[in-house]
Amino acid sequence: MKIKSDWWKILGVVLVLFSLFQGLMGRVPVLPILHETIRNIYYHVPMWFAMVVLFVFNAVYSIKYLSSGNEHHDNIAVESANVGLFLGILGLLTGMLWAKFTWGEAWSNDPKQNSAAIGMLVYLAYFVLRGSLDEAQKRAKISAVYSVFAFPVMIVLLFILPRLTDSLHPGNGGNPGFNKYDMDNQMRMVFYPAVIGWILIGVWVMQIRVRLLEITNQILEN
């Protein structure tokens, strides 16, 4: 562990620990229906933020691969999608649990829920596509092209389509994100560190997976 190059891993752990502690201890706005579950914002929403950041990595490194043909870029792209998908599934599950107690049903076919599920399927298809191609270079190239198209589709599904219709989820039906009634400034002081912390941890897990993949390939080649 070198402080100079790995400080962001420690920062991620500290920020998430802070959000675990302050997320339960801090004062939250008194709201009907939500009650104490408003604290879920600190734990459910960062999953999606981290997922989007990892999918950005996926798209950027796919483009990088297409221009360079460097295998390392493809490795980063595939592992970003992998960790991103995992975080997205955690986001869906935590969202379902939260919805069960505030919206009445775990799955109420809400536009946000449906489009998030479709977004997950889009990235699941990325792995199906990769699994169906045997030749490494062809697989990397075709899946990189797929990623470039998958990313805007995911953004539209998650952030644009739900806003065009009415949804139970905050930040939809025309409102951009949380408004001051849902989240006050004191909550933001926990929420943003939580988001940054989980993004860092997501990127860290992705980095570990990339290194694992590359060392495995290296050992198998020898």
Binding site: M1, D6, K9, V13, V16, L17, L20, F21, L24, M25, I201, W204, V205, I208, R211, L212, I215
Partner: peptide, 23 residues
């Protein structure tokens, strides 16, 4: 509760750090 959650998360973090080190 905070203690329990923190123990779990610190444990996971140490686990991640050890994987990182071994790699």
């Amino acid at each position: 509760v905070i203690g329990t959650i923190s123990v779990v998360f610190i444990g996971l973090a140490i686990y991640l750090f050890s994987i990182d080190k071994r790699l």
